[in-house]
Design a binder for these strands. Structure first.
Lengths: 242, 242
DNA sequence: GCGTACTACGTACGGCGTACGCAGGTAAGA
DNA sequence: TCTTACCTGCGTACGCCGTACGTAGTACGC
């Protein structure tokens, strides 16, 4: 059988493989949920870098090293934080039956969550996030695609693709909306680049300026998402040429 | 006129707005290119975290604080590193005229570069990377789309979308190919999840197993990229319903 | 020639992740 | 019931990190 030991050098690096409670010893004073909530609150208020082990432990009223009884590595604290955000999603009991609508609504809800927690996109790159809430999310996403003729692998790819786009969009929105010194410098820089004349394509592409699209705030997101969903739902054609 | 001062509290945070050389004082012993090359070499060999200011300075044979004459902030060192990687692209003198082929070849080349520099995807999220090499790349990308009827904004969105997918794919490939302890734990965990029976959709999606796709290594990349290029080149239709 | 802006860099500060060891408490096995 | 092994809580300490600051030397513009 597999070894269930959770301490020592052969302890699993994946926190979801560790039982939250072993039954021996004193009752733990904190839960994974409360730890994750404290870390998320700090990251929301002061940025991801502020969510250090010391700060989170202090927010819980615990000594720094006590936190390591619950979260053996910082990386696993990040896993807990991500799963806590996914837990905020309000998933319908079951999909409506229209994959396009279901996915669009789902991704829209995720965008709202990512606007509350702007540090998520930087974290989610290359991190599966398959905790309890992540599993529920995955299950719902796959259920949305149950009526299609996509293969299992194609469904997983679709989830990765749409979530990747989501994070990319949310991060872009966050950095451009942040304002501040960096953005002002960037504008100055791009103006100089454009007037230099050395980059005609770029100058032409930026000719319209970013001032021509204020009407619908989320139009770009909705339109691109709509296209991606269509692309993803298209049955697999023949292999491309290249 | 704009203020060109490069020191003091009002110095621009964007490194590309700082002249590399002002003409006064002793000749600098290093160049931005050599600094970036040293940092890239360290990150390639030992990971992004190893590319600290101290390590890079030491690799250049300089004192730690001397590096701050060239790179006032760590963040700007990362900008230099990204631009150095973009500088490795071997861009054709001009596009062939077929946007699909041009973009596919370009993204393929980028994938090859990201395989050499696996730390790039984590960095590129939310970072424009518009140094000298980034500008050349942008110019070429836009030139590939010059023959289409896409708007300037649509071209920029296309670039962001395809590059986002590229980084996401490269990061996924990197983490899954890395092997090691974490991946083994993940397999154990997912097996338990599947056999628990609580996640039937997930169990079904993973039924084929990841062992059914060894034939063409880059088939998923090519196929998805092909679809995304098609989606991006499609002229803008009416607004979606939702 | 002189002043000034630049380069080079040693020291130091506050913060980080976390290894280690110890005290005290609790549940399982005798 | 008593023992014992393991758990929790946490203070201390180590080696990193980014970087503020001060000082000394150098080479160009006037």
């Amino acid at each position: 059988m597999t070894d269930d030991r959770t301490t020592g050098p052969e302890a699993p690096e994946l926190i979801w493989l560790r039982p939250e409670r072993t039954g021996r010893g004193p009752r733990p004073a904190h839960s994974r949920d409360s730890i994750a909530a404290a870390a998320v609150a700090i990251a929301d208020a002061e940025g991801l870098d502020a969510a250090s082990m010391r700060r989170v432990a202090a927010a819980l009223g615990a000594g720094t090293m006590s936190l390591y009884n619950y979260v053996p590595k910082k990386e696993q604290l990040l896993d807990l934080m991500l799963d806590a955000v996914v837990g905020e999603y309000d998933l319908p009991a079951e999909p409506s039956g229209d994959p396009r609508d279901d996915l669009h609504l789902l991704l829209r809800q995720q965008l709202a969550a990512l606007r509350r927690h702007t540090w998520v996109p930087r974290l989610v790159i290359g991190r599966p996030s398959l905790g309890p809430n992540g599993l529920r999310y995955t299950e719902y996403f796959l259920a949305c695609l149950a009526g299609t003729d996509l293969s299992g692998a194609a469904k997983m790819e679709a989830m990765a693709l749409l979530n990747g786009f989501l994070c990319q969009y949310a991060e872009w929105e966050h950095t451009t909306a942040a304002g501040g010194r960096w953005q002002a410098d960037l504008v100055v820089y791009l103006q100089r680049v454009v007037v230099s004349g050395e980059y005609p394509q770029l100058a032409q592409a930026m000719a319209g300026g970013p001032a021509a699209e204020p009407p619908a705030p989320d139009a770009v997101f909705d339109r691109t998402l709509h296209r991606l969903i269509s692309a993803v739902l298209t049955p697999e054609g023949p292999a491309p040429r290249v």
